[in-house]
Design a protein around this nucleic acid. Structure first.
Length: 108
DNA sequence: ACGTTGACCTATA
DNA sequence: GTATAGGCCAACG
């Protein structure tokens, strides 16, 4: 995880609190050479990473918490998001476009 | 080594 | 507007 994986973790940690982004956005930020699925796999191994990776701030393009079941307590994802001020209803982020954080637009 | 699955996205009907 | 198909790369069995 010296290249893509570490990059994914880094970008994920750069996500400001109360903001959310999508796998595709991160994939495009790192380069279209890879697919968004690999980002999901990277975050899948992120739970063992020593620096805490706010994977709960990463959702799919539809704003749906698809990976909430991958959390140790599946409800932790929604709990953390609501704790940061993000309203989640039915495993879906409310005003996703407003809370959306694009690394390409923000970071460049 | 091959086949299948997966925290997805874009395109077409 | 929703529904279906294809594609991408990596890990698991």
């Amino acid at each position: 995880m010296d290249d893509f994986y570490g990059r994914v973790y880094e970008v994920t940690r750069l996500i400001p609190p109360g903001r959310v982004t999508s796998y595709g956005a991160i994939a495009r930020y790192l380069g279209t050479g890879l697919s968004a699925r690999v980002v999901g796999w990277a975050l899948n191994l992120a739970h063992d990473q020593e620096p805490f990776v706010p994977a709960h701030r990463v959702v799919n393009r539809n704003g749906l918490l698809t990976g909430k079941v991958h959390f140790h307590p599946p409800s932790a994802m929604q709990e953390l998001l609501e704790n940061e001020g993000v309203t989640v209803v039915d495993d879906q982020v409310v005003d996703f476009d407003r809370h959306f954080w694009d690394p390409i637009k923000e970071l460049g």
